[in-house]
Amino acid sequence: MNCIIIDDEEMARAIIEQFTLQNNNLTLDAQFSDAIQAIKYLNQHHVDLIFLDIHMPTFSGFDLIQTLKDPPKIILTSSDRNFAIEAFEYDCIVDYLVKPITKERFDKAVNKAIQFKTPPTISKTEDSKEAKKDSENDLYVNIDRRLIKIDIPTIYLIEAKGDYILIKTSGKNYTVHSTLKKIEVKLPDDLFLKIHRSYIINIKKIIDIEDNSVLIEKDVIPVSRSNRPELMKRLNLL
């Protein structure tokens, strides 16, 4: 199996690299300290297995998994045991290694990966089932030369992240090289509203509003003072 390592910590990469060199079933193709660079690589190269750190600045291991359309087998690595339950919610995750990793535990995880069969289909969320299938509800985003279709009604949040935007849907997240201004004009006005200079939300997905923040899915998003009147106008207030 060819594999890559994604971990922002050099020490962790060096240890996993050594283990991969000692394991006859693995060929290490590349290693990355940054998830965005890894996504670019993964969009151009086939990889059988990723050793993926969960806790990375800006873009976590889970963000990366949600960004990949067809993720390969993944062995998560972390200094934290607390993510284990969340980890196994993803079909592509083979095993979860807690740092410091031992050679025995590493080899056991690789053996699991060899025998692991990735489920052929990705389960659809309730939202995407309900979403209209008209082409006007589709948004195509360019992620490293691949056009990926997103069902617009399933989007609940769009966040500006430097030169990128993070599009969150009920099923997956997508990191796209674009701006809030560009995506705003592609979205239906009746569904979406910019509530802060860094956030556009789907107002149908709001759970509650408290003071100057909105709870949408599991995210608490600030509402800027200047955008608050427009948000209140859109609500069906009793």
């Binding site: 910590e9 020490m11 806790h55 200094s79 934290d80 740092k99 410091p100």
Partner: peptide, 13 residues
């Protein structure tokens, strides 16, 4: 807290 998280690995090493 994020930096402490990273330091945990060095502590265990």
């Amino acid at each position: 807290a994020d930096h402490v998280h990273k330091l945990k690995h060095k502590i265990s090493i």
